[in-house]
Simulated assay, not measured.
Amino acid sequence: MSIDRYYTLGRSGLRVSRLSLGTMTFGTEWGWGADKDAARQVFDLYLDAGGNFIDTADAYTNGTSEAWLGEFIAARQARDQVVLASKFGFNLGNRNANGGGNGRKHVLKAVEGSLRRLGTDYLDVLYLHVWDQITSADEVIRTLNDLVRDGKVRHLGLSDVPAWYAARIQTLAEWRGLEPISALQLQYSLVERNLEHEYTRLAIELGMGLAVWSPLASGLLSGKYRKGDATSGRLATMQGSGNPAFQHLSERNWQIVAALEDVARQLDRPMNQVALNWVAHRPAVSSVTVGASRPEQLKSNLQALDFELPVELRQRLDEASAPPQPFPYYFFTNTMQGMLYGGATVGDKPDGYHANVLVSGSGSGVS
């Protein structure tokens, strides 16, 4: 079990593990997650396997995730080894109009808080956590660029933003010679493929690597849930919360689970490994975030890249999980596009056609 092969993050020179460690489970404040001893074991296991990309946020378990990570990294003297990413945006206080969001006042305060809890003087990657629908793209990219200029942040990312907003921020950065966005962090799994409508092409065209979260759909694709018996676990706990990120117990998704189970049986592999392998090999994906509340969960997840998913089985999963094609996206399907060329075959350009595409080699990959 080794994950010491790295992809560059977008067009940056930052090399990250193809499986990153998500630490939303570090802490028990939310009613689920890992206690400190289990979290430390998960952290050590990930580093020992060769992983280097660790993801957290100021809002995770009310700051506990960042605080514990700071302790674990210091104990291992691993700050130079790890690529440490955190996020800002959510309001951690009460009735403070500027205590959240993406405005300059909050961003600068939030980063200082993250640095303090993590016990470090810089972040390797800083993500805007969620679009706030208020702050202009201009203010966001200028503020983020200032943090890079001041040495508090090395690379920038966006998480859970509209595609047009990400494109505008990246265009402003390029136009004004500011630090570009290197990563887009978005939900992606067999049951959540909507990013394929816009973000895959966006990431490739504008040089941003996709950093995937919830690749197992909060455990649905791990095999721990069964139709008619999903009464415990995170998905069951969050079913009535109103948070769309956890609403996966649907008839469509049970059909996808059944297809995944069949493919996993043919490969003699656990369902979680097959699901992770599938998403890790999707276009533009630089890294897939895996979380765990127990070491044995992480051990299994870290073996997800130790095998090749045959073309015919990958196609089976593609077909079973294909998302609907609403307007205007059905105009971009093969059937409709063929009408543009009168039936003539128009092939894709070969790998390496563009000078700015990194051709894979030892220890690197196309992102």
Rank of each mutant, 00 (worst) to 15 (best):
T143D: 15
Q77A: 14
A203P: 01
R18E: 08
L235W: 06
D132A: 10
V125P: 09
V125F: 02
V140I: 15
L84P: 04
K109A: 14
I134S: 12
A110D: 12
D146G: 06
S114D: 14
L340R: 06
Y330D: 15
A39W: 06
R201V: 05
A304H: 07
D146I: 01
N356Q: 15
A320P: 04
V279H: 05
G93D: 07
G13V: 06
N301G: 13
V212E: 09
V111D: 05
P310W: 00
P180T: 04
I256H: 08
A259D: 00
Q337E: 01
K227F: 09
A245E: 03
M208H: 03
G347Y: 00
G151M: 14
L69P: 06
N102R: 06
A67Q: 05
R193N: 02
S86P: 00
R40Y: 09
F43H: 03
V212K: 08
F331A: 15
P328I: 15
R193Q: 14
G347R: 00
F331V: 11
E196V: 01
H155E: 14
F26P: 11
L276M: 03
D37I: 09
K299S: 05
N96L: 07
G343D: 12
R282C: 12
L317Q: 02
F90L: 13
L144W: 09
T237K: 03
N96H: 11
R265Y: 15
V42I: 14
E296S: 12
H248D: 07
D160A: 14
Q266M: 09
A78N: 10
E261T: 08
T289F: 08
A280Y: 08
G10E: 02
V16N: 02
H155Y: 15
V161Q: 04
L305T: 12
L220E: 01
A49E: 03
T231H: 13
F327Y: 14
Q187G: 08
L186G: 06
N145H: 15
A38G: 10
L186K: 08
D306S: 13
A211I: 08
G228V: 06
A67K: 07
D58E: 13
I73G: 02
D37C: 02
T289P: 03
A173N: 07
G70W: 04
S300F: 10
M24F: 06
F26Y: 15
L172Y: 10
M336K: 00
D132K: 06
I181Y: 00
G207F: 07
L340W: 05
Y329Q: 07
L220S: 11
Q81P: 11
G103S: 11
L128F: 13
T120K: 04
G113I: 12
S136V: 04
N94F: 14
R40S: 12
